[in-house]
Amino acid sequence: MLHDITRERSALIFIEFQQEWISDEGILQQKVIKDREPFRAAVANGARIIESARANGWTVVHAGLDLSADPDYLIFNGGQNVLGLRQAIPRAGAWQDKGAGRVAPFAPLKGEFVVTGRSGASVLKNSTLDPFLRNRRIDSLFFMGFVTHVCVESSLREAHDMGYNGYLVEDACAAFERAQHEHVRKHVVHHFGAETNTAELTAFMEG
């Protein structure tokens, strides 16, 4: 239930609604996605939410990833002597130029916050997001985007540990496979926050 939520103290966090995931030509879309229909549904639901947020004056945050200014992936040592995403991203050649691009309705509008400085799976890691939220006295975060079991889950966990109330908008997220998405819903979310969906969230914003 969302009865304790207020517009002034909430933010809608759109994680990586970018070409890498959304476009059929995206490197990550081609390489790792096995169940594409949930991705299409998540994009459609994200569009519904961002349109409602804009119409009703809610805070919109674009928490993407863009490594175009670091074509050699120096931040990750070029993928050498590192593990996890720090190795996988340089090997895939992801998050450069076109892949980091945004399309309507997820292209930032004037007055919407664009996160910069991020260096980890969590959109809060070393980024400008935390000071933005604290300066606005925002304490409730609604997470959407890609992928559920990596960056979305990491963000939900870190938000919890930093003192925020985090919500997974479950039908506006997707994973490589449905099973990964459902695992997060069943076994992870209740430890670090709560769950909502597009219908509930938009009805609340528009109510």
Rank of each mutant, 00 (worst) to 15 (best):
D4C: 00
L12S: 06
I13H: 02
F17M: 14
F17I: 08
Q19I: 06
E20G: 06
L28Y: 11
Q29H: 15
Q30K: 15
K31A: 15
I33S: 11
D35P: 11
A42Q: 06
N45P: 08
G46A: 12
A47H: 12
A47I: 11
R48K: 15
I49M: 09
I49F: 07
A53E: 01
R54H: 06
A55Q: 11
N56Q: 12
N56V: 02
V61P: 11
A63S: 11
L65W: 13
L67V: 06
S68L: 12
D72M: 12
I75L: 08
N77W: 07
V82M: 01
L83A: 13
A88N: 14
I89R: 11
P90E: 13
A92P: 09
Q96Y: 14
D97W: 13
D97L: 11
G99W: 06
G101S: 13
G101I: 03
R102N: 05
V103G: 12
P105G: 07
L109V: 11
K110N: 15
G111C: 11
V114H: 13
V115G: 10
G117N: 05
R118D: 01
A121C: 10
S122M: 08
V123Y: 03
L124H: 05
K125W: 08
N126T: 01
N126L: 00
S127C: 04
L129E: 10
P131M: 05
P131D: 06
F132H: 15
R136P: 09
G145P: 07
L156A: 10
H160L: 12
H160W: 13
Y164M: 09
N165R: 14
G166T: 08
G166A: 14
E170C: 09
A175E: 08
A175Q: 02
R178H: 10
R178A: 13
A179R: 14
Q180Y: 12
H181C: 10
H191R: 01
G193R: 03
A194N: 03
T198I: 02
E200G: 00
L201M: 06
L201W: 05
A203K: 08
G207D: 01
